[in-house]
Simulated assay, not measured.
Amino acid sequence: MRKNTAKRMILLCIIGTFGMGRTVLAEGQLSYADLENYNFCFTSGVGSWSTELEVNEDGTFQGNYHDTDMGDSGEEYPNGTMYVSDFSGKFTDLEAVNNYTYIAQIEYIQCEEAPGTTEISDGMRIIYSEPYGMDHAENILFYTKGAPAAELSQGYLDWVRTLPGTIDENGQLAFPGIYNEVAQEGFFSTEKEVTEASASGIDEELKQTAARASVLESRLGTEQDLTVMTQLSNELFLVWDDQLNSMWQRIKTRLPAADMERLRDEELDWIAEKEAAVTAAGANAETSMRTLIENGKAAAVTRDRVYVLAEYLR
């Protein structure tokens, strides 16, 4: 479980200022516009902690980091501790290293709440933190979809190779990736299905997501190999988690500030409840089965939350 000590106490957490006078990329090379239709995620399991990131055409980005530790409790916060960071920033211009690797730095990054700030909400301690995965950054590497896995950083592969579908049958990266080189922290990505949703559009979007989930559920129902089952259950969770994260980013741009603040508090409560439910689901399971069961519970709880949040996009 990641614990972020959040050493800096300023709202604008500047990591570096770079990028003056960089060369514009030649036609055909990777640009930030190529990354705009992907959701990036840094995680290592069923979502006990994760950092979600979206990159915009102009190199700006926004994201969220959260981690929950139900065991870190006290008299004033019996429901545990949550680490949270809502952040935004900007990358410098991309520079090509080779045909499948590009490099940039973080021009600036800022957190909505000052890292280190603490509050108690509904019996839970909230610690506002620096964004895990984007912290202590110097060089940020961008890998193109189709990059040969054998030539990627081992530190990056150590983070993403355990996820299903990371490397395709040709030994190539199956998605664009982002790697914080110094901190050795790697993001995988999934393609956004829909960038904008109308009242009818969100229903069609959810229909497509449910169809993808149904395929995975069918495979789980017939699979006999426990390792494959566990991988499929993790992929099922990610289908719903990606959908939730995509919807959340859109909701943030639509709700008035006061309504968004109330929904944000509700979302923090939901994350804590989800983590507690996942932990409880696997508590009495055999070690070999625990991850499979926890994945299934995380997928089901996240799916239910997706349909709740969908109401805000109708």
Score class of each variant (00 low, 15 high):
259 D>P: 11
259 D>S: 15
259 D>F: 04
259 D>G: 07
260 M>A: 14
260 M>T: 07
260 M>Q: 06
260 M>F: 12
261 E>S: 15
261 E>M: 11
261 E>I: 12
261 E>F: 11
262 R>P: 09
262 R>A: 15
262 R>G: 08
262 R>M: 15
262 R>H: 14
263 L>D: 01
263 L>H: 00
263 L>R: 00
263 L>T: 01
263 L>Q: 00
263 L>P: 00
263 L>I: 01
263 L>M: 01
264 R>K: 08
265 D>T: 14
265 D>C: 11
265 D>N: 14
266 E>G: 02
266 E>S: 11
267 E>Q: 01
267 E>T: 08
267 E>P: 05
268 L>S: 09
268 L>P: 02
268 L>W: 01
268 L>E: 01
268 L>N: 12
269 D>C: 01
269 D>E: 03
270 W>Q: 07
270 W>N: 08
271 I>Y: 01
271 I>F: 03
271 I>E: 00
271 I>L: 04
272 A>W: 01
272 A>H: 06
272 A>F: 05
272 A>R: 10
273 E>Q: 15
273 E>F: 10
273 E>G: 13
273 E>L: 12
273 E>W: 10
273 E>C: 10
274 K>Y: 06
274 K>A: 07
274 K>P: 06
274 K>F: 03
274 K>L: 06
275 E>Q: 13
276 A>S: 15
277 A>F: 03
277 A>P: 08
277 A>T: 09
277 A>L: 06
277 A>E: 09
277 A>H: 04
279 T>A: 15
279 T>G: 15
280 A>P: 02
280 A>Q: 14
280 A>R: 12
280 A>S: 13
281 A>G: 06
281 A>L: 04
281 A>T: 10
281 A>Y: 02
281 A>W: 05
281 A>P: 03
282 G>E: 03
282 G>D: 02
282 G>L: 00
282 G>V: 00
282 G>K: 00
282 G>F: 01
283 A>Q: 11
283 A>D: 08
283 A>I: 00
283 A>V: 05
283 A>L: 06
284 N>K: 11
284 N>I: 00
284 N>A: 03
284 N>R: 14
285 A>S: 08
285 A>E: 09
285 A>N: 05
286 E>Y: 12
286 E>A: 11
286 E>C: 08
287 T>P: 06
287 T>N: 09
287 T>Q: 04
287 T>S: 13
287 T>M: 09
287 T>C: 04
287 T>A: 10
287 T>F: 03
287 T>L: 09
288 S>L: 13
288 S>Q: 09
288 S>E: 13
288 S>D: 10
288 S>N: 12
289 M>Y: 13
289 M>G: 13
289 M>A: 15
289 M>P: 13
290 R>S: 12
290 R>H: 09
291 T>C: 08
291 T>Y: 05
291 T>Q: 13
291 T>M: 10
291 T>N: 07
292 L>V: 02
292 L>N: 05
292 L>C: 04
292 L>T: 08
293 I>H: 04
293 I>W: 04
293 I>Q: 03
293 I>V: 10
293 I>A: 08
294 E>Y: 00
294 E>N: 04
294 E>W: 02
294 E>T: 07
295 N>C: 06
295 N>D: 07
295 N>H: 05
295 N>V: 07
296 G>I: 00
296 G>E: 04
296 G>V: 01
296 G>F: 03
296 G>N: 02
296 G>S: 04
